[in-house]
């Protein structure tokens, strides 16, 4: 997914090879990760797609099924991955993820510590931000979950940038070997205040910490704990509103005077109103209109940031 090796740039119109991971796009709300394997087929309501038809095509191509249905094959990115990964836990989405990476001031070469790993949604973006020379160490106390995340990192090709460990971070803190070496620490834990003293120990001077919590009571306790080692403690909520766009053709009504002679466009319809004035409707000019979508995520969590004193 990431061009870790400069000889394999993403920008080179890459063609799909056997073994590649592709994001199969049917619609914006219907996407699926597929590892291309000669001989395999993808079956969905648009028909049967043969993987062998895909090999050699460039990413971004439209491919057809036996029934003439079609999908697009996209190159994976952290944003697409977040939309298609299997949810083994609650995950972070693009708005929170983007803000976390920017506010933690993560740049290539950084060492970042994360807990818990969860489904690895954030981890993928952290890996992108520290590449090609930095590293993300992510910990979860749930062994199976950590293993699945590790498999995913392998599958999407970021395992050289990420190490997934099994550890109870609230109970034991981060491993001592990272003391004073972390440029940034991220916590998405049920009781983050238990891990904050360890986070402080891991960070370099002026290093940044972020804790994500859905509930304000968690934020309250975390902030109190941060007071002793951190400065610049700030809490945010980030949300996105999406818009739908359509072309609208609307008739315009105008009330005519008695003589019916105003208006420069020829009226296409003329109806007599009961009061004698006529209502004229002009041929509509179409215009593109936008409005917010009716449903949106109303809350994800609070993001508390702080800087080591």
């Amino acid at each position: 997914m990431l061009a870790i090796d400069s000889t394999r740039k993403m920008s080179f119109n890459r063609t799909i090879s056997n073994g590649d991971l592709a994001i199969v796009y049917a619609r914006h709300d219907n996407m699926k990760p597929v590892t291309v394997s000669e001989g395999s087929v993808l079956q969905n309501r648009f028909g049967v797609f043969k993987h062998s038809d895909w090999i050699g095509k460039s990413f971004g191509s439209k491919v057809f099924s036996n029934k003439g249905g079609f999908v697009y094959l996209l190159a994976p990115t952290p944003e697409l991955w977040t939309l298609v990964l299997s949810h083994r836990t609650q995950i972070l989405y693009i708005a929170d993820i983007s803000f976390v990476v920017m506010y933690l001031e993560i740049v290539p070469g950084f060492v970042v510590l994360e807990s818990g790993t969860g489904s690895g949604s954030l981890t993928t973006s952290l890996a992108r931000a520290v590449a090609p020379t930095g590293h993300v160490y992510t910990f979860d106390f749930h062994e199976q979950r950590s293993g699945s995340a590790r498999d995913d990192f392998e599958k999407i090709g970021i395992s050289s940038l990420v190490t997934a460990g099994v550890r109870d971070i609230q109970g034991e803190g981060f491993p001592e070997e990272f003391a004073g070496l972390a440029d940034a620490v991220f916590l998405d834990l049920p009781q983050p205040w238990l891990a904050i003293p360890s986070a402080a120990k891991m960070l370099r001077h002026d290093g940044t910490l972020c804790s994500f919590s859905p509930c304000i009571e968690q934020v309250q306790r975390s902030c109190e704990t941060m007071q002793s080692n951190f400065t610049d403690i700030r809490t945010f909520e980030v949300l996105l509103r999406t818009y739908e766009v359509r072309e609208g053709k609307m008739e315009s009504l105008e009330i005519d005077g008695d003589d019916g002679s105003n208006g420069s466009l020829p009226p296409c319809k003329r109806r007599q109103r009961s009061d004698g004035a006529s209502v004229v409707s002009y041929p509509s000019s179409s215009s593109v209109m936008a409005r917010p979508c009716g449903e949106a995520r109303g809350h994800t969590g609070y993001l508390t940031f702080a800087r080591l004193n």
Partner: peptide, 19 residues
Amino acid sequence: RVDTLSLLLSMANVSSNSD
């Protein structure tokens, strides 16, 4: 705004070795 800038960088998949 800073959150908007952060979204632009994510949405355009800004990552090492890309043009």
